[in-house]
Amino acid sequence: MVAKRIIPCLDVKDGQVVKGINFEGLREVGDAVQMGVQYARDGADELVYLDISASREGRRTFVDLVRRIALGIDIPFTVGGGIGTVEDAARLLDAGADKISVNSAAIADPSLIGRIAARYGSQFVVVAIDARCLGGRWMCTTHGGSRPTERELFAWAREAQERGAGEILFTSMDHDGTRAGYADAVYARLAEELSIPVIASGGAGSIEDIRRVLIEGRADAALAASIFHYGQIPIPELKTALNKAGVNVRL
């Protein structure tokens, strides 16, 4: 059986890893390549690098960084942030990324998913969705959660799958940054409705939170940032505990 994956997420600004606390007050936590190499050694199954640079210069720096990451680490990695065209995706693929993630641009133009998938395969395309619960309905947001949309989470996830997404990375904006657990029930419903893998993101605060989203939430992978970056939960300890709890993980 395919192992459940543990994925540290690194937000990168001008080549340095930062972690946004509610997307404000960004703090630098380390060198993006060195941190990736360390995570790979510790047993991370995959890495996600998100470019949060706003400037053109920052974007160019990111492509160079992706090239260095690809040379440095020996596990798969996804890159995202500001990918708006097939050409953006091609540049990152050429630099060595295994997958790209699209978010706001896919909502603005859903055909982007199919165009990238047709050229490079579904396995290359992760559709990232940020959503929050409004009046009992899960609604998608864009631009880091700052802009509401008319799209409903489950309908959009199904559409993304039909258009050629290889995976869905769903972040609950209601849970992100709280460290109070993932939106387990929402992931369980996504698993029910989709045939492609789902990555859970937002809310990890403890080993138990991660176990729950992988088992009760039926997520294929759990993504987290701060609990890993600040050493709160070392990955070897996390995986040993998950294994003891009967979760199929790579040790």
Binding site: V2, A3, D45, Q123, G166, E167, P197, D220, R250
Partner: peptide
Amino acid sequence: KVPHMGWN
């Protein structure tokens, strides 16, 4: 799931 993707 197909594709078979991940660590096995």
